[in-house]
Design a protein around this nucleic acid. Structure first.
Lengths: 234, 234
DNA sequence: GGAATGTACTTGTCTAGACAAGTTTCGGCA
DNA sequence: TGCCGAAACTTGTCTAGACAAGTACATTCC
């Protein structure tokens, strides 16, 4: 059991003070010089502690003015979405994918627009149902820009998830998400084995490259079987 | 237009290489010494660049072994949940809150347990409907630990949101979230003016202090009116 | 062959000092 | 009174060097 590093000591001290409301938001916190004197460490060390707190969103700093407790009003809580395959296997369960469609099709107008294709252009379309221990958990309806992943249709999606494959051949640069509640389409209800009016958690995701959109996915989860969970500690 | 700082140049160069798949995951990336030689900057400078990439989850580093491109399989995308009031006002809309209940009540067993109260203990209970431009967007059913916010019931919630107030009097230290799709309770359906079977996005949130749970909230949003959106750029 | 050892390389961290650049404050001047 | 500029303070960044500690690999010894 070794002593924590000095920068970590400073950081912990500050974090603790922040947690118990010392330094009300808007009033300046100790300056780097103060902390140097208080802890007897060099300025680079306290700078690192403060910079990390800043990147964690706990303080705001501005040149010439000082360091301030971040207005926590912004509850900016983060939650993460993981690859379903990993999530299932990490929990010690069995993941299985059933491919219901995998072919090139003319993209509907709305899809073509969001994929940056000409109206009526062809794109790869897969519909895959992912299950955990035999229970369908997600229906993944995905369109892929052929320019970004030309060999997409050659992949065996019972062994590799589209997400995983696409990350390898076309790492994304930007992504957008939407999470909403909705009802499944008739096809989705049938594939998932649920009622037509059962509430579903619908995640839509679009990723792009530097130049072009890569893929557009609609992930439908039965509300009774899937929850996105997250924790958050400042 | 000034030149970017050296550490930022190094970081951008690395980020770019990562984005285009140089350094396949598992094979070592340039060491700090390499980068020092390549960019003609000091080691602290490249160290900062690498450390920031690490904290962004783009690389993994390990003492004695080297720096590696992070296996991007982990799609770990972050999305943020903001305070509804801020979100509405930021969009230039009018936020209004209607308080339907605000009183101390014996907490149901499930609530008492999660709030760390004795079975049958009393807690503050508020039910508030938030609307945007007159349309109900969220039904907020909240239980508050009286020990954490004794004056909770004295607040005028048509002017301050519970989230905002609680963050001021009892900043949280840890939070847990769940997002799921479900149907509203009869009361929620009535307050939101929606059908009893309309799919809703249900967010549950629990925050705690160092010592004790602070609050437990169930936020119900009509699926047709509310979406959680987020973006993500590595 | 197998084990111990030494060496080279890696990241982790700290230091003392420096200059740049933004903000605030206060004194002096018109 | 009102304006202006200097001083003091803040953060932002970089440097050159140092020691610690973990890892990998070749060499040496049994």
């Amino acid at each position: 059991m070794s002593a924590p590093a000095p920068y970590a000591r400073v950081k912990a001290w500050l974090k603790n003070g922040l947690a118990r409301g010392r330094w009300p938001a808007g009033r300046p916190m100790p300056s780097e010089a103060d902390l140097v004197a208080r802890f007897g460490v060099s300025r680079m060390t306290v700078n690192r502690a403060l910079r990390e707190l800043q990147s964690e969103g706990l303080v705001t700093r501005s040149q010439g003015r000082g360091t301030f407790a971040a207005p926590l009003h912004r509850v900016a809580a983060r939650l993460t979405i993981r690859d379903l395959h990993e999530e299932i296997e990490a929990g010690g369960h069995v993941h299985r994918a059933r491919v219901h469609r995998a072919r090139a099709e003319p993209a509907p107008a709305a899809v073509a627009a969001r994929l940056g294709l000409a109206a009526g252009g062809r794109a790869f379309h897969t519909v895959i149902v992912h299950s955990r221990d035999g229970v369908p958990l997600q229906c993944e309806d995905r369109w892929v820009n052929p320019a970004a992943a030309p060999d997409y249709l050659g992949v065996d999606f019972t062994r590799t998830t589209p997400t995983h494959y696409l990350l390898e051949v076309a790492p994304f640069w930007k992504a957008q998400y939407g999470i909403e509640a909705g009802v499944p389409t008739a096809l989705e209800a049938r594939l998932l084995g649920i009622g037509a009016r059962e509430p579903c958690l619908v995640v839509t995701r679009r990723t792009e490259d530097h130049q072009r959109p890569i893929t557009l996915a609609r992930l439908v989860h039965p509300g009774s079987r899937y929850t996105i969970e997250g924790g958050f500690a400042p």
